[in-house]
Nucleic acid binder design. Structure first.
Lengths: 232, 232
DNA sequence: GACGAAATATAAAGCAGTTTATATTTGTGG
DNA sequence: CCACAAATATAAACTGCTTTATATTTCGTC
């Protein structure tokens, strides 16, 4: 897992938004690396707040960034956590709106920051980067649309199964996911009680085992098959 | 209202996705108008289905297009209806995935269709168009993110109030919205019963009046104020 | 190794949505 | 204008989530 420890617990990435760097050819990558500045954020540091007006594009070179909002009753709701190689900042830059989420560094994090002007120049001059940026934003849109459809049509246990599988695939092999149930609840925007119950259902089916800060998935295949049956 | 009749009832646009044409300067507009081909679709005709592989960008020059999906139990769930001047096709073109929704013409509809190649050329050559396309996709992302947040945090009556206000503003002045409750229910991905009940709540507050195929909003201000109070 | 904080588990009451069912009102076509 | 289909309204039983509450387990620390 590329994310590092926080409060003694590694944080698995809940939702894999479209990666940015990995899709770029080496050359274009080098052109970007030659631009902007690199900034460091330590674990837990705030990168920006919802409503801020900063307009720059950021690429995560190390660590992770969690995007969240405070609900009406003050509860934290996490949209996503982006990891190394992923990028953010498209909304302020391209849609011209303030930051839509709070962003916090998870683990020791290095960001490459490109200003509005640098970004404009890059987009005008570099066809590779241009199509990569368009691809990046479009994939974000796709992922959020799927998230919306899932929330509209699937019960929590199925959404939970999906995201457990996604986390599993990210840490190829290891059957143990290190995450607190409260974090999972935040990510799915449900109460801790509901999440615990949904996990209990999966446990009842023999699909997961749960403990203090971890969830084991003995058989990825069994979970996958159960999920497919669940989706009809 | 720019959408025309369907089944005898005009269909109000439920969700205003980022407009495309209106944001473009005349010149760039003319450059686009010189490209692609124009196709006609009559009311109710299918433009594409979820899963199709066609990769082209479409701009609505007249009429409207409704994007929907079939749920697990066969029910129709509408994501959005785009009207004149708006565009679609970014996911297949830029994210490289098949069509994510079924698309159907609402009313007599004219589409300007740009092929993948034409689009690539336009993006490479024309800075105005490039930033407009980026802006367009980013605004779609923004709107879907807000939709997701609303569904996660607001009760149906508040979401309903929001979308009624949005429809009102689109038909500046006229207090009567012509829409069936079943359409509203589809757009909000809830049952007809739940929607009818939510409308009854608003009616109880004196904020709306309802009838066969229409909803009246006597005071936009009153509804706005109620909504603000509702959001705390 | 005992203590306290954090995390998990579960119960119970409440609420907002679901499906199913029935009645009533409204518009349309013969 | 009458008959029928479409749209609306409302009730009742059920489900999945909420909040609140309590108990238990686990881990870190002193």
């Amino acid at each position: 897992m590329e994310e590092t420890a926080r409060d003694g617990l590694a944080v698995a990435r809940p939702l894999v938004l479209g990666s940015f760097f990995p899709g770029l050819p080496q050359e274009a990558r080098a052109r970007i690396m030659a631009m902007g500045r690199v900034e460091h954020r330590r674990d837990g540091a705030w990168i920006h707040q919802r409503g801020d007006h900063g307009k720059f594009f950021s690429i995560i070179e190390r660590g992770a960034v969690r995007f969240s909002r405070l609900g009406l009753s003050g509860e934290v709701r996490v949209l996503a956590t982006l990891g190394t190689g992923e990028a953010f900042g498209e909304l302020p830059l391209f849609a011209g709106v303030p930051r839509a989420y709070d962003a916090q560094a998870i683990g020791d994090t290095m960001l490459r920051i490109l200003s509005h002007d640098e970004m404009d120049r890059l987009l005008a001059e570099d066809g590779e980067v241009r199509s990569q940026v368009l691809r990046h934003v479009s994939r974000q849109l796709l992922i959020v649309l799927e998230l919306l459809e899932d929330e509209r049509s699937l019960p929590l246990r199925a959404r939970l199964g999906k995201s457990l599988l996604a986390m599993l695939r990210q840490q190829d092999g290891a059957a143990r996911i290190r995450i607190r149930q409260s974090d999972l609840a935040e990510q799915h925007a449900v109460s801790l009680v509901a999440l615990s119950k949904a996990l209990a259902e999966l446990r009842g089916e023999g699909l997961v085992m749960t403990g203090y800060g971890w969830i084991d998935i003995p058989s990825e295949r069994a979970l996958t098959q159960w999920l497919e049956a669940e989706l009809d």
